[in-house]
Structure formats: C-alpha cells, structure tokens
C-alpha cells in the first residue's frame, strides 16, 4: 500500500494572491490544502483576458521517475501520462491505440502495477515510478519476456507489442500465469489485431516455466 507520507504534491507557490484563493483557503479548514493551478491563469480566464496569455500559466510542475530517471516536467493537468511519455519524453514505445482504455497498447507499470497510461492524468503521477517498454531491458540484455516474444513470434506489426509485454510481465508477477486459460483471461486487456494471441500465450508460458525472475 502506498505510503501517504511519500505523497508530495507539486511544490508550486502561486506568484499572485487573490481573494478567490484566500477565500478558498479560508473555507477549507486546513491550510495545507493546495490549489495547484496558478491563480493567474484562472483569473485571466475569469476576466476574459486573452486566453493566449492565460495559457502560459496553465502548466504545473510534475516530478516522476521514468525508467529509473527523475523527470522534472511542466504539464497541463489535462495531459495524460501517455501523451507526456510520447510527446514530451519521446518515449514512443508506449503506444496509443484507442486513447480510451479499450485496447491496452498504452500499458505501463506505475509503482510496479500495470495500468492504462491513456486514462491516467500525468499530474496524478507525481512522485511515482513509471516503467515503460524502454525501461525493461538491462542495457543490451533483453528482458526474458522480450526474448520469449521474439522466439515465439508474439507479434506481427509490433504496435500492440510493448503493451503486451508490459502486461505479460505483470501477469507473471501478479501470479496470473498459472495456466493457459488464466493467461488468456489476464492478457485480455491487450488487443492484438494481427492475432498473435496463441504465440503470446506460448511466450508467457515459457518465461513462467523457465522460472526466471521477471
């Protein structure tokens, strides 16, 4: 379970105070409550100042660890983890297949758990550890699951593959690779349109049976 102590919001200090913020803080009984959007942006929007001016202030700082590397970013709250990975960090191994949590191509690990990065707001990843497909191999040495996918041809076009592999690794770590049937069920959150499913199952079985640490 996640420790609350380890949870830190972006340490941003608004540069302008205004009455709405003061009111807000007064109303909330705890002064530690943080309104994270710079008030200038909101104020500009309220006052219908040109949105283009306001836009400058619409970003929030985001600190997260991606594949072992600390990233200090500035993101809009609406940016998804997927878009941040692909468009800001150039980690394009994580794929966009549907953008609505319906295909699994965007699967990454957050603090070791597989999730759909397309339905994850980046700003909510503050302080988290993200692993993407790019972070799976150790240097030139492929992860056993990557090796097994190659050996068993667990893909054709390769587009769903990073998501499948991230899911496959999680599937074993979770203890859901006990049988072919269980693997199929626990790999059903990753659509493969080329139809590599049996090969994917074979790859996972091999890694599971091989007993390697995943």
């Amino acid at each position: 379970m996640e420790k609350e102590e380890s949870f830190h919001g972006p340490d941003i200090e608004p540069d302008v105070e205004d009455s709405s913020r003061r009111n807000f803080l007064k109303q909330s009984s705890l002064l530690t409550a943080v309104a994270l959007t710079p008030v200038t942006a909101l104020k500009a929007a309220e006052m219908r100042v040109d949105d283009k001016v306001a836009s400058v202030f619409e970003k929030l700082p985001l600190k997260m660890e991606v594949n072992g590397k600390q990233q200090n970013l500035s993101v809009e709250p609406r940016s998804t983890l997927l878009d941040i990975l692909r468009e800001q960090l150039d980690l394009t191994g994580t794929k966009k297949g549907c953008d609505h949590g319906q295909c699994g191509a965007c699967t990454v690990h957050v603090d070791g758990k597989r999730i759909n990065s397309c339905l994850t707001l980046g700003i909510m990843m503050n302080g988290k550890k993200i692993t993407t497909i790019e972070g799976l191999a150790k240097g030139d040495q492929l992860h056993p699951m990557q090796e097994a996918f190659i050996k068993h041809d667990g893909f054709q076009c390769g587009y769903c593959t990073p998501g499948q592999i991230m899911s496959a690794v999680a599937c074993i770590r979770e203890g859901h690779a006990g049988s072919e049937q269980e693997i199929r069920e626990y790999m059903s959150g990753n659509i493969c349109r080329c139809g590599a499913y049996p090969n994917i199952v074979n790859a996972i079985l091999e890694v599971k049976d091989g007993g390697q640490t995943v």
Binding site: E134, Q146, D153, G158
Partner: peptide, 12 residues
C-alpha cells in the same frame, strides 16, 4: 525469428 523483432519488443 523476425529480423525486426528486437526493435519491436524494445519499443525502438
């Protein structure tokens, strides 16, 4: 195995 397998399984 596929000649582009490594690129595909590493996200490259």
């Amino acid at each position: 195995s596929r000649i582009d397998g490594r690129l595909k399984v590493t996200g490259a």
